[in-house]
Write a protein that binds this DNA or RNA. Sequence first.
DNA 1: AGTCCACAGGAAGGGCAGGCGA
DNA 2: TCGCCTGCCCTTCCTGTGGACT
Length: 402
Amino acid sequence: MENKAQMIFQDFIKTSTPIFKDRNSLNSHFTPDTIPHRNNQINNLASILAPSLKGGKPSNVFIYGMTGTGKTLVSKYVGQELEKISNQGTNQVKVLYINCKMKKTADTEYRLIAELCRLLGQDVPSTGLPTQQVYNTFFRLLDFRKWVVIIILDEIDSLVQKMSDDFLYNFTRINQDLTNARVSVIGITNDLNFVDILDPRVKSSLSEEEILFPPYNALELQDILRQRTKLGFTEGVLTDEVIPKCAALAAQEHGDARRALDLLRVAGELAERTKGTNVTGGHVDAALEKIDYDRIIESVKSLPKQSKAVLYSTINLIEKNQDEIQTGDVFNKYEDNCKNMGLSPLTQRRVSDLISELDMLGIINAKVVSLGRYGRTRIIKTSVTNKVKDKIKNVLEMSLVV
DNA sequence: AGTCCACAGGAAGGGCAGGCGA
DNA sequence: TCGCCTGCCCTTCCTGTGGACT
């Protein structure tokens, strides 16, 4: 006798007209053969990096632009092409890509250097060694032969947040410690004001060249979606309204191509699950809701217990129709809840940080205001719909109440 | 103009866990 | 096993903030 899961899988196989031709090509991490509307940036970056093919050290490059404007895609693409050409000649160019926001990978100085060692073929323990020893290994690997190494540091702003910009200063001057190899750094950030907060010394060495990635407009997003649709969807399954709708929704959010692709892919998946033969505008609406809903619920589920307790206390107060909740109110409620749940409460200082973190995750909205002689505090509200709030409460009750 | 409030948020450091080399 | 190192979470201490109130 077939079980439920087997029936679903059998159904999936039997479906006569599949929605997807190649699901992977609708992923934002997929690198297509051509990148529409980024010729200027590709030419610019390629010209800057070209001297590496003759053994010269290219200038350090600073790339900035909003989320989903193709910064990472273009950098990786140009890097790949550069390595291809280099492999045909005698000069060896090596491109290393690191996302500095990746937890447990490159979110501290030690881990970043350890990860670079790994990319150069040498395993380094994730902790335990003195940082200087990891640096020595890194320098030895770099200087092993006469090559040009281009290090792409994506989300470089989060690196500076966690360490000081002294690290970046030393990193961009790494060539002083090398005799054979030459190293260039490409820094990528979404934060348009990042350069302004940098130490002027770091600024001048990191931004020898700068490339700006402007947001895509709705028409450019449509071109990108059409290109991926040809690769990813079976011909004719998309109704005419789908691509313009995805593009328009993503254009509202600062021309984010990643968002547009996610909408398109999830709309396709929803059509597939409902056994539809076409992807319609209705599927795009449902995809929009699903993406936001999933993101919030997943981040709530992965919160540490104390953060959950703080969020639960906030929701308790909001449900009591308190419009103007302040940090102090949340802390008092949190202390009560901790007593009831047998949890040892953290200090107000720590709870204040947890509230900031919940704000950054987009689960709550906490705005710092001054109430005159009644002090300075945060006014806290939820930034989700009632339906999502109820679901969050269920998730929290399941994981907090033993 | 000076005072006051209720925090925000930076800095320093403690304690613990995990991991390494000797 | 021991000493050392890093990462992480947390506390303690402190200064700064900005608008209402006096």
